[in-house]
Structure formats: structure tokens, C-alpha cells
Amino acid sequence: MTPSGSYRQYLDPSVLSKIDALELRARLVVEGYITGAHRSPYRGLSIEFADHRSYTPGDDVRHIDWKVYGRTDKFYVKEYEQQTNLNCVVLVDQSESMRFASDGAAMSKLAYSACAGAALGYLSIQQHDAVGLGLFDSSLRAFVKPSSHPGHWRVLVDELDAACRGGGDERTSIKGVLFDLAERLGRRSMVVIMSDLFDEADDVLRGIQQLRYHNHEVIVCHVWDPAELRFPFVGPTEFRGLEGAGRLMTQPQGIRSRYLEEVDRFVTRLRRGCRKMQTDYVVYDTSTPLDVTLSAYLANRSLRIRQRSSRVLGGG
């Protein structure tokens, strides 16, 4: 699904970074995305027709397909995929490492995640889904219960905005957070994790496993800075680690390949683990246009709904 060109520019992080208000950013992303969606074959934005079946007493006569009756003289009612009220929780990592933005990057990983999270919230509420928010670093710092009320989005945006403006210096510890979240979510939900996942891969997967154990759908958005994926440094460089990781001085050219191997190994490990748990795992860097993020989310949402939703009569 490709948004139209005129709105596409608002999905570019480098453009969005110039807009200070997160709310406006998110609206731009979604409006831009939906405008493009009208031209796309993407399905799932509205209550969709699924099949016909024979009328049985008790069925609402409003659902009788009169056109079919005119052709066949039999009563058929239209059957729709029920748009269940999806619970979506956007879990945004606000640890110190998420505040990193390399030279030339449009925004930090946290800003990018917040923007994407707000856009998802806005989109979900537009679809009458309930949206919640979790902010975490070493623990779950804030949690907003899912709600589909239109005014709820403002609450989410305020929380995300506060997280972006805050000065957190905690390191990521995701396992406990996901365990905690799994306990808090009473209803089956879709959990969208937006984090750099700079934690032990096993802990990350164990936390996801816990969510899956509680029948929550999980989408892992692994957010990177472009420099973290390309390691473009040249000449003697002192790397000052965030989250108290110390300092390291080296010749980046000499270790670049080794570094990229390490990153690849980590990503591969997570991707395989997620696949085993039927969990979507997507790698983004902060230069990725946000419609890609939304597309991934919506595609996953549509797939999950098809797989898990019961076939009901429209409105029933």
C-alpha cells in the first residue's frame, strides 16, 4: 500500500522531525497514510462483507440481501466479518539508549517510536479499537489502559510527549516489563513493542513468550538508528556508551565488519525467536518512513482478525 505522493512527504521522518507537536505529527502520518489508502486494495479498514447464508428465523431482516432474493427467490442474509473491538497496547521503550540520534539522523529512536505509537493510536481509535500505552525502561514506568474513546488519544499523546521530553537515563530491562504487562492486560490484546531491545536476546524472547502465553498478539518493532546499522565512522573515535556502558576508543574501520556481524547475529537471533512464537518482528531505522510502520501494523492486525475472529452476522 503506497500513500499518495503529496502526503508521502509527511511520512518522512526528516520532515516530521521539523514538526514539534507530537499530536500534529501523528495526525499527519495517519491522514497521509489514509489518503493514500483510498487508492489501495488494502482491506480491513471497515466492516467487510464475508459471505451469504440461508435465512433462518430470528435473523434480522435488515440483513436480507434483496438483490440475491430478486435473482433467486430465496432469502439469504449477508454475513460480515465482525470487527471485534481490538485491544491494542503500544509499548514504547524510553530508556537512555532510545534517546540516541546519530549525526544526520532526523530524530532519535524514542522520538521516532513516539511518533509511530501516536500514529497507531490515532489510527486505531479511528477504527474504534481500544488503544493503551506502556512506557518502560528498566521497568514499566507508565501504563495507560486501552480505550477507544476519541478523547483517549490525547491522553496517549501527552504521555508520549512527556516521555520524549523527559531525561530518563535508565537502561533497558525488557523481560520484567513484559511479564508485568502480561499480568496487567486482562483481555487479549495486540502488543506493539517499540524498542531498540538493547537487552539480552534471551530475556527479550522470554518476555515475548510470556505475552504469547497470555494469548496476546505481539508485534516487535526493533528500532535502530541508521548509524547503528551501518557504523559509518572513520578515524580514531571514542564511543561513550549510554546507559552507563562506559567508554571505548578504537579505530572504527578496523572493527566495522565485526560490529556489523554482531548486530546481524543479534537481529537474527531475535527474528528466529519471534518466528517460533508466531510473532511479527520488524526492523526499522529512524530514517524509515512511518507509513511502512503503519502498514506493517495494519497488515498484522488484519491477519490476526481474520485468523481469530468468529464469523458472525453483521451487527450481531
Binding site: 532510545m98 538493547f198 547503528e228 573515535t237 564511543f239 561513550r240 572493527i255
Partner: peptide
């Protein structure tokens, strides 16, 4: 040398 704040220290190390 240039100084760079760096998040992905685990891979660097």
C-alpha cells in the same frame, strides 16, 4: 579522536 555518544555499546564491545 572524535567523541561519539553511542547506544549500541554491547555490539561494539
Amino acid at each position: 579522536y572524535r567523541r561519539v555518544d553511542w547506544a549500541a555499546m554491547r555490539f561494539l564491545e
